[in-house]
């Protein structure tokens, strides 16, 4: 069983590596972006798909990673390596604080509390306009974006860096959900009362899930800023909290591979339909409605339901 799980996920990484050599420049660039955003979706999925907590505020973690990386890099010149670490730590710290407060609630109240914290983070970015330049954001120079000697603005290095991060997040979560602790998370999702009766400390497990989820999302945000050279408040806006939910639901909540396909699907849905008509949102909207009607579990979820019951 483990062999075919490894084969599937390793296979995806191998295919993505092969595509690095095959894809034309445009799709090559797109896929790099999709992989970074897929990390964001994977982070979201840890909390939503595996722990059953629906957050509407993950943009704050993405933004914490992005600004936690970008501001020290730009203003203190600490170098991309340390800055990336600072981004991770910012997101983790924020996730810890938010988790401690928000986990007092559940269900819809959890949605609103995370939404509100995220909105406060967004407004704080605007309030600190002296450094963040508010909505306009900060451009990171090419010279700043050198990571262990690698120029991240180079398309090849960018793609491979995105792939490395994606592979890391993918296998990290794959490992996590197969750990006893990961299985407790799934048990909480299915029935937290029963999990509690079995003697598990639900709060600590949930808190760990929030921190892991927030940190992975922050890693995606930090990587996005480093790879594409821009740090802006738009990424903290509410639609960037809705996107990972949408991606994960489309790809298949509670599957390791699903978030990637959700992001990929959504990206090309917009990109291709905007080539056909200026009313691409109409096409996107209709596609979403049809997909919920005919693939209720999301892409990977349907696959698991129909063919591959072993899909993690």
């Amino acid at each position: 069983m483990t062999a075919r799980v490894l084969a599937l996920h390793g296979g995806l990484i191998a295919v993505l590596l092969a595509l690095h050599f095959l894809l034309p420049a445009y799709h090559h660039g797109n896929l790099a972006r999709v992989m970074v955003l897929a990390c964001y979706a994977i982070g979201y999925n840890v909390l939503f798909g595996y722990t059953g907590l629906l957050s509407l505020g993950h943009a704050m973690f993405f933004a914490a990673g992005m600004y936690g990386m970008g501001l020290p890099l730009h203003f203190l010149g600490i170098g991309a390596e340390l800055a990336f670490l600072a981004g991770l730590l910012s997101a983790a710290a924020l996730a810890l604080v938010v988790g401690l407060l928000a986990l007092r609630t559940a269900g819809v109240a959890f949605m609103i509390v995370t939404l509100m914290f995220s909105e406060a983070v967004y407004l704080t970015i605007l309030l600190a306009g002296k450094w963040t330049r508010g909505d306009e954001g900060v451009v990171l120079e090419r010279a700043e974006r050198v990571f262990f000697g690698l120029d991240l603005s180079d398309p090849d290095i960018r793609y491979l860096a995105a792939l490395a991060l994606f592979a890391l997040c993918l296998f990290l979560t794959l490992w996590l959900v197969r750990q006893p602790a990961g299985r407790v998370l799934i048990a909480i999702r299915e029935n937290d009362e029963r999990a509690r009766l079995l003697g598990y400390d639900i709060f600590r497990h949930k808190l760990a899930a929030v921190v892991i989820s927030g940190t992975i999302s922050g890693a995606a945000g930090a990587a996005y800023g480093l790879l594409f050279g821009y740090v802006g408040a738009t990424f903290a806006e509410v639609q960037y909290s809705i996107f990972p939910l949408l991606w994960v639901l489309l790809g298949g909540a509670g599957t390791i591979i699903g978030p990637f396909f959700g992001v990929l699907f959504m990206f090309y849905l917009i990109d291709l339909s905007s080539g056909i008509t200026s009313a691409y949102m109409l096409i996107a909207g209709i596609a979403l409605v049809l997909l919920t009607l005919f693939a209720p579990q999301g892409l990977a979820g349907e696959l698991r339901r129909r063919r591959m019951r072993w899909l993690p």
């Binding site: 939910l245 909540a253 909207g285 596609a287 919920t292």
Partner: peptide, 14 residues
């Protein structure tokens, strides 16, 4: 959950 996605679709359409 499916209603959320479907109504997001509806939002785009409208």
């Amino acid at each position: 959950e499916r209603t959320i996605v479907a109504t997001i679709g509806l939002l785009y359409i409208l």
